[in-house]
Structure formats: C-alpha cells, structure tokens
Design a protein around this nucleic acid. Structure first.
Lengths: 218, 218
DNA sequence: CAGTGGTCTAGACCACTGC
DNA sequence: CAGTGGTCTAGACCACTGC
C-alpha cells in the first residue's frame, strides 16, 4: 500500500456534534464524490480502517452500512468493500422524464410556461439547496441537476387519477374531462435534503405505470 | 406486564440456517402481520427482549432495524419501539385488497357479481394452478389462496387512468365520467406459475398510490 | 427520577474469496 | 492458506422521554 486513506479523510472528533459513524460516513461520501475514491476502488479493510481511525470496527461498519444504503458502496463478503461502479447507470427505477421518453424511442422537449425565482422560508432554505439559477435548466431538469452535482438519488412518489382541465388538456393535445394521471414527486439527495418537488400530468390513454412487486422484503 | 411476548414468538435456533437477527426479524414480522401486535403497540424494551430470548441487545437491535426499514416499526428514543400506526398503500409492495383496507382501519367486504368456472386452454392449464373450487373464496381471495398454500409472492402490476362507466360508477357510489384508476395485476407463485389475474377499479378521489423510489437496485 | 433507545468498545468465531 | 466481510457477545456511557 502506498498511502493511507485514513490520512486523507477529515479527522474524526469524538466530542463532535455528530456521532462518529456519521462523521465517517460523510468523510467517505465526500471522498467518493470528489473522486478521491473512483468506481470499483476497494476500501481499506474494515479492521484496518478502524485501527487507523482509532474507532471500533462496528463504528466503521455502521458508516459503510449507510453508504451501501445510499448506493455509493457495495459489499463483497470475503473480498472487500468497493465503490459502486457507474452510479449514474443504476437509475433504472428513478429516471427523469427525458430519459424515460428517450427509452421509449420518443424525442422529448420541454416548453417553459412560467419560470420564476422566489424567496423561501428559513426552513425551506435549510432543506432545499437547489440550483444557483433557474437559467441553468435547458430541456432536462435532471441534466441540469446532474451538472450541478445535485441529482436526487431517492424519491417519494404519489400518484392519483383526475380529469384534465382545459389548460392541461390543451397542453397535452387532449380534451377537457379526459382521464389523466397526476404524479407528484419529492426528490432527495443522499444526505437527505430535498432538492426537487415535481408535479407531472399524464394523458390517461397514453401512459401506463408498470411495477414489479415482491412480498419478500429482505 | 402480564404476558411475555418472548413466549409467543417462535424460539430462536442458534444453529439454524438463518442468522439469529433474521430469525427474530421474521418472528416479529409474523407477530405484526397476524395482529398479535397491533398498531401503536409498544414492543418490550430492547434489553428485556434480549434477556428473554437469550441473545445480545445488538442482535435485537439489528432485527428491529430491519423492521423499521420495512416500515413495520418506528423507534422513539427514550420512549420505546412501536408498531407503525399507518401503513400507506405502497405501489411497490404486494398486499391484498382486504389487508390494505384493514390497514387503513376500514372493514372490507366483497360482493360476488358473477362467479363462474370455465375450461381453460391447455396452455393456461399448464401455468394456472388455481383453487380446487371457487366456493372456497369467502370475503378475501388472498385468504383463500393462503389457505390453499397458493398465495402469490410476486406480481406484475399495471396502472392506468380511465373514466368510470355507468356500472363501475354505481358499484363505487360515484358518477359516470368521474376519474378512476384501473390496476391490473398478474400474481405468481414462487415457482413462477401464474395464479391470479386481477382487475381492480378505484375511485380517483379516494385512492392515492405512494411509492418510495431508489436509485440503487441491489 | 427511572427507563428507554442511541452510540461505542474490544473482543470472538464463522463463511467466504482469491490465490 | 491468509485475508476479508458477516454475525454475535457483554459490557459501557450518553441523550431523551415521561412522570
């Protein structure tokens, strides 16, 4: 081994505000996001990392557990822990509208109906860390978020049926009163902060939602 | 305390095929699903559960962690661990309609509109191994399938918006032309054979679908 | 205040990988 | 085979809840 990862990571503070495992989780996350650790790179062994950082192995494991949960690391028993390869390619479930359309062989485009910036409440300012400016958004919101390093990795989605009103019908080239779907989504960054709130209207006659379900949760 | 939960749970086997924490996780999951533990019920304290089951507290915590992840339990620091009160309809989880309604505190019932047995094609006969007789079905199809050991463990689900027609509106106490949802589902046994084909109509104004999406697919 | 979950340690043995 | 992650123990102290 040439250099020690533990020397690169920010030192852990046992008296800090955050628990040790969360401090370590953040340090490792930053190392991955800043490409100090590249895709498929192996982490030092858990026992070695624990010794160098002067914490217990369980604390190291808990930090790694969190990063596995976030999708940044993968465990391989007997072999080691590795930085997840091709993180962007893993967005099979959480895809942007543009990607979704292109996957169906359609050419998506977007029309700005209204674009505004506004002040947010202090609480929103704490949790929402959006783009520097809305001008950054071209045809794809997700591509703009990607460029800013702010692409959501987790989302909560809600879906309901409605009748299209006149404005919605016109935009979708349908008729008022036609069947429609509304999908609302809040997207989160790996650190849990919300970065996207999205309302999408679909024509009921052209859009199906398909899900593969499982009753085993392990 | 009157009776001990530990006496009700299936005993843990240190030499079993599954790790202790997974055995305990399954026992607790079954206790919740069988309503041995009801919504908002408190679990015994972690230390007490560990002592009664003769395992370490960390093993208990790991089992509870898994059930929190599944959404069946919630932790409240300083207070205890509790059975989750409200289970939202999750588009990515496989539940029966009756279970779904009961989880919302409603009393489901079913009305037979038409019940028929018919001959199936040889291909269908090969893949569909349904109940011996349709008379076995009372109020809940899934309970009948459960008794027959034929409960689906995997399903493919499709959802789309529509306008309720006169018959559907009447059955749902709605009006023709109201917004509705149609969910079509094919259920499979663990061996891959199809055992259920189901079309469910929902009123658009009373039913939301919620999904938690993730960018990591492991 | 007693009781609870949240974090953390220093061990131990097992199952698996890759040579 | 040595090295790795996976599981498990028996402690300890802290922060929080609810009275």
């Amino acid at each position: 081994m040439t250099s020690s990862l533990a020397e690169i990571l920010r030192p852990l503070d046992p008296a800090g505000a955050l628990p040790l495992y969360q401090q370590l989780q953040r340090s490792l996350r930053e190392a991955i996001e800043n490409r100090v650790l590249g895709p498929d790179d192996a982490l030092p062994a858990e026992r070695q990392l624990a010794a160098e950082l002067a914490v217990s192995r369980i604390t190291v494991r808990k930090a790694i557990d969190g990063l596995v949960e976030e999708g940044l690391l993968v465990r391989r028993q007997g072999a080691g822990n590795f930085v997840a390869a091709r993180i962007e390619k893993n967005f099979a479930k959480l895809t942007s509208f543009s990607e979704d359309m292109r996957a169906r062989g359609r050419a998506p485009h977007s029309e700005w109906l209204r674009r505004s910036e506004g002040t947010v409440s202090p609480e929103e300012a704490l949790t929402l860390r959006l783009l520097e400016t809305l001008d950054a958004v071209g045809d794809s919101l997700y591509e703009a978020l990607e460029r800013a390093g702010r692409r959501p990795t987790r989302a909560l989605q809600r879906l309901r049926a409605l009748l299209l009103n006149a404005e919605q019908a016109k935009l979708l080239h349908a008729h008022p009163g036609d069947a429609g779907l509304l999908v609302e989504r809040v997207g989160f960054l790996p650190d849990g902060s919300a970065v996207e709130f999205c309302q999408t209207f679909y024509r009921g006659d052209t859009y199906d939602f398909v899900a593969e379900l499982s009753s085993s949760n392990d």
